[in-house]
């Protein structure tokens, strides 16, 4: 797999907020058909790194490459058009629109019909059908007419994932997709992620705290600590490595020892 060309790559990617270096010289490449988990303690810079890749932030220095093209200066919408899809850690929906309308907006973006100001949106049955297809995947079809705001937290998380699916990107970026979900909802999302991974041409990046999830899904684990990339490799070997034990699991172990 490493012999193929990377889809997305960061080179010496750095961002500084005042005196604080949130992401420091991170270089990493991601290949099609693989699922990479990004782990690290809170404040390690995982979400900031995601923001740099999907365009919500611009780097202080370094590059983001998509199929070898430098996209680090492009705005977020352009990157989304180029196939970078992002789901957010904090639920980030269109609160007063219905679940269906939320999803249709994602589908319509891919169809590039946003500038059509004369046809009735409701008459585009193809877009509604597509949207319903993705809502069925995230088990929200029965809630299509609900206002997003009125959904329980777990359903909002599912819709967040549904919007990403509806964008049909080449690179799927999940930021803690199962955070705050109930135990019986988590497998729905994990199965969906596993399905995406099974499609050979997609790249999946996953920020996740639940180590059992990470271990079962990942082809590869990248560890960030204090904004730096400290480990990168096969799941078993990364989890076992001393640097990870110290940086990530260290604190937890100390606590258990004390207890």
């Amino acid at each position: 797999m490493a012999s193929e060309n990377p889809v997305i790559e960061t080179r010496d990617l750095t961002i500084q907020f005042g005196g604080h270096v949130a992401v420091n010289q991170v270089s990493c490449a991601f290949y099609p058909g693989t699922l990479t988990s990004i782990v690290g303690p809170n404040g390690a810079g995982k979400t900031t790194w995601f923001n740099l890749i999907s365009g919500q932030l611009r780097p202080t220095s370094g590059q983001v490459l998509l199929h070898g093209e430098d996209i680090s200066r492009l705005p977020a919408p352009t990157r989304a058009d180029k196939g970078l899809g992002r789901a957010f850690q904090l639920t980030n929906l269109f609160p007063n629109l219905t679940v269906l309308e939320n999803t249709r907006l994602a589908v319509a973006s891919r169809y590039n019909i946003g500038y059509n100001f004369w046809n009735m949106a409701a008459r585009r049955q193809d877009i509604t059908d597509k949207a319903m297809h993705y809502l069925t995947q995230v088990k929200l079809a029965h809630r299509a007419d609900y206002v997003a705001n009125g959904l329980p937290h777990g359903d909002q998380r599912k819709l967040e994932v549904g919007l990403l699916l509806a964008l049909e990107p080449e690179v799927f970026m999940f930021d803690e997709p199962t955070a705050g979900m109930s135990v019986d909802e988590v497998p729905i999302i994990l199965d969906l992620i596993a399905d995406i991974k099974a499609r050979e041409d997609k790249v999946v990046l996953l920020v996740e705290h639940k180590m059992d999830v990470v271990r079962s899904l990942s082809d590869r684990i990248v560890v960030l600590h204090n904004g730096e990339l400290v480990a990168d490799g096969e799941p078993a070997e990364v989890i076992a490595s001393p640097v990870v034990q110290e940086a990530y699991l260290g604190a937890a172990q100390d606590e258990t020892e004390q207890a």
């Binding site: 705005p75 919408p77 929906l93 004369w118 009735m120 949106a121 964008l167």
Partner: peptide, 29 residues
């Protein structure tokens, strides 16, 4: 009335509701 019920109008609503997310979906707000 036609305009606000067109795909364009839907994007306007998306901008009103959450401009940040509208951009992340690929709309140049």
């Amino acid at each position: 009335l036609r305009l606000v019920n067109s795909p364009f109008g839907r994007v306007l609503l998306a901008i009103r509701e959450n401009e940040f997310r509208a951009e992340a979906l690929g709309y140049r707000t």
